[in-house]
Design a protein around this nucleic acid. Structure first.
Lengths: 231, 231
DNA sequence: ACCTGAACACCGTTCAAGT
DNA sequence: ACCTGAACACCGTTCAAGT
């Protein structure tokens, strides 16, 4: 359980002085988020991961909220959503934007525990700032005004976060793991409700189950980017 | 603090037997969510609101998660998002959908504490089912296939939830209450970051602050519904 | 300066007991 | 059957003490 900053196993309480850094605490936090769930991140669990007493963390962070904010920004940096080139074709900005928010969606669905905190964190960390800056750059170069670019960013961001939230919430509904089993159970559970109450829901059971298994993320994203610019 | 089911004040512990019902517990929960924040709903606080011991609630609900699920469904019913008529004009379905998800956005932004739970709750409650049924009905009558209707619902839902999340998260950033003060502070805080690092962000400071104050919800919603159907 | 250990107030929840 | 009161394990956090 205990890991030193150099990766050598250490007995608990035997940590060299001054070896605990903000960076390392946040990395341990992200590790817990990826392996377990950010929702289940505890000061004691985080301290255990670092081979340290919980109170040691308070020397580097004001409180847990500050730790979470830091982990979230590290998560954004780690996802590297804007870390790819803009192509040469006339429509390149659209493709780039699709890929960027696609990466964001993938990162969010693969690290489910972060969702509940996205509506809680208020400050933009440096990594979030950097990603925002890159997106604005591309949209402006595509010919958008400042306001158009900002609005488009906000709308795409909202859609991506909401889609990731629904995708993770629905996929975790039942059927521990296996996607086919998940879909089958969801379909049965919908078809079990009385058709006289919600006829349209029951009729669409198969399609609803399909959406629960694989959220139509790409479809909505393309709709949001369709016909945006004259060229 | 203590309120009877008939609205008459009662001394704590003096509640008539069998007067505590699931419905009343959920209503007290929604009251706390509206007045305070659902995130801060505690079994003890909820019990206090009802003039009862925390353990009394466990006679009616398995655990806190079940209470939250119930409050969320009551919240959906209370918002009555689908509770309005479809017009007669050829494009009526589009207007109806805009209003429906607009109501959802308003309800979510006016009851901020619910956001973190939307990615946690897995089951559709009866009120959610009913709203889903109504939306599918309108979209199908407009000529969509079952799959088209379901996908459209999923995409609109994701966007609305994400937008409400961002709107509440960002508006709570600073400036306790006053929207103008909020925008001013946000703008200053953005302009304070070094322009050499994030030039596009700094240049768009005024527009970003505007988005934080009022999220361009309508814009994205209209984009998602544009050119959906041939007619 | 940096970390530990004991303690506090609060949380969800169990359990045995009251009526 | 329905509710109470005491207790348990866990949480974030404070504080005084160690080196």
């Amino acid at each position: 359980m205990a890991r030193s900053h150099a990766g050598i196993a250490v007995a608990p309480g035997k940590r060299p002085r001054g070896s605990l850094s903000r960076e390392e605490i946040l990395e341990a936090g992200l590790l817990i988020a990826k392996r377990d769930e950010l929702t289940r991140l505890t000061m004691k669990k985080l301290a255990g991961e670092l081979g340290v007493t919980p109170m040691a963390i308070y020397r580097h962070f004001e409180n847990k909220a500050e730790v979470i904010d830091g982990v979230l920004d590290l998560f954004v940096r780690d996802a590297a959503v804007a870390d790819h080139e803009v192509g040469k074709e006339p429509d390149a900005w659209r493709r780039w934007t699709l890929v960027t928010f696609g990466k964001m969606f993938d990162a969010l669905t693969q690290t489910p525990g972060v969702m509940p905190f996205l509506s809680t964190t208020s400050r933009f960390g440096p990594a979030a700032m950097s990603a925002l800056n890159a997106v604005l750059e591309v949209l402006r170069r595509a010919g958008m005004s400042e306001k158009q670019a900002v609005d488009t960013f906000a709308v795409l961001c909202a859609y991506t976060i909401g889609a990731a939230g629904l995708a993770t919430a629905w996929s975790r509904a039942d059927g521990a793991g296996d996607p086919d089993e998940e879909r089958r159970r969801m379909r049965l559970s919908i078809e079990a409700t009385p058709r006289s109450d919600f006829p349209n829901v029951v009729d669409a059971a198969a399609d609803l189950a399909g959406v629960l298994q694989r959220f139509p993320f790409q479809m909505g994203l393309e709709r949001l980017l369709r016909r945006e610019l004259p060229d």
